[in-house]
């Protein structure tokens, strides 16, 4: 085989996570690189996603590479009925790497099997989006100086939110994490993840509210509570109000605490938090460019 892909966060070892952190920092210090000189990277977005696509394309450009691809399936051969198999076969003849987003779950794993060049999954339906997790980790590393011994608050939709599941899996590789799950019963962390933590002897606590306890947090990871998950709109209204993070709630939090959010935010973080130095979500998005530079150069073995 010899080729390496990034499809799920668990495809990487702890050593690789650390290598990505180190490379991200290196690229942040010096974002103008020529490691991808003479190389062509395909960004295939079968489903539109402006944020993720631009972040990857910025990363490729900063590495000195060229970009081919499409940003929605209307402008691609898919609209002519070509299968994913054939599109990937064709593109892997044209590019040195494929970065793809596709609405079907498992599409990225399948593309990696079909392709002769490395594949990065930039989101396969509700399944995996590993570069998001790595940029979350880099944001944590950068602001806390470590990935061990952290008290992490995961807030909001912990049932369907893939970002919190992937982050939990990745951080469970590090020493002594404490997870605090804040979610309504309808959106609680699934049993399989709690069982996984129990088997690894990792402490976690479940809460319905977080106002009185966030002072313990090193990281507050907010997610969007999706209205469409609720059958009863009254239930949604109740829950929505509990999970709005407001600036005054941060008054007695630790000085090192940072608020993360995978974005887009709807109303779960009040805009009055934005100017607080503990708000980190916009910098977190910026970090994504350096993390993606790191992922690309790691998979292509460019150092």
């Amino acid at each position: 085989m010899g080729k390496k892909d990034l499809i799920s966060i668990t495809d990487f070892s702890k050593e690789e996570y650390l290598k990505i952190m180190e490379l991200s920092q290196k690229f942040e210090e010096n974002p103008s690189q020529s490691l991808l000189k003479g190389k062509v990277i395909a960004t295939l977005f079968f489903e539109p996603s402006t944020r993720t696509r631009l972040s990857f394309e910025s990363a490729i450009s900063r590495l000195g590479g060229k970009i081919i691809g499409f940003s929605d399936s209307n402008s691609s051969s898919v609209s002519k009925g070509e299968t994913l198999h054939d599109t990937i076969k064709m593109v892997s003849n044209y590019a040195d790497m494929i970065i793809m987003r596709h609405p079907m779950e498992g599409s990225a794993r399948y593309a990696a099997e079909v392709s002769d060049v490395p594949v990065i999954n930039a989101g396969d339906g509700a399944n995996q989006h590993p570069s998001q997790t790595l940029l979350d980790m880099y944001s944590i590393m950068k602001t806390q100086g470590r990935l061990d011994d952290l008290n992490l608050f995961l807030v909001g939709d912990l049932k369907y939110g893939r970002t919190v599941h992937s982050l939990l899996m990745a951080l469970s590789q590090f020493k002594n994490p404490i997870f605090n799950f804040v979610a309504p019963p309808e959106l609680a962390m699934p049993d399989e993840y709690k069982l996984f933590l129990e088997q690894k002897g990792i402490r976690y606590f479940e809460h319905l509210e977080f106002n009185d306890i966030i002072n313990q947090a090193d990281i507050i990871y907010m997610t969007r509570v999706q209205k469409e998950r609720f059958i009863d709109p009254v239930e949604y209204e109740k829950v929505k109000n509990i999970y709005i993070l407001k600036n005054d709630m941060l008054a007695n939090t630790k000085p090192n605490v940072k608020i993360l959010h995978p974005l887009p935010r709807i109303n779960e973080i009040h805009t009055n938090v934005d100017s607080n130095p503990k708000a980190y979500y916009f910098t977190q998005a910026r970090n994504g460019v350096f993390t993606r530079m790191a992922i690309i150069s790691h998979l292509l073995n460019l150092q």
Partner: peptide, 14 residues
């Protein structure tokens, strides 16, 4: 067959 209707194996000949 994979039970997930959104699985690629149900969309394409995989």
């Amino acid at each position: 067959r994979c039970f997930n209707p959104k699985c690629i194996t149900n969309a394409e000949n995989v």
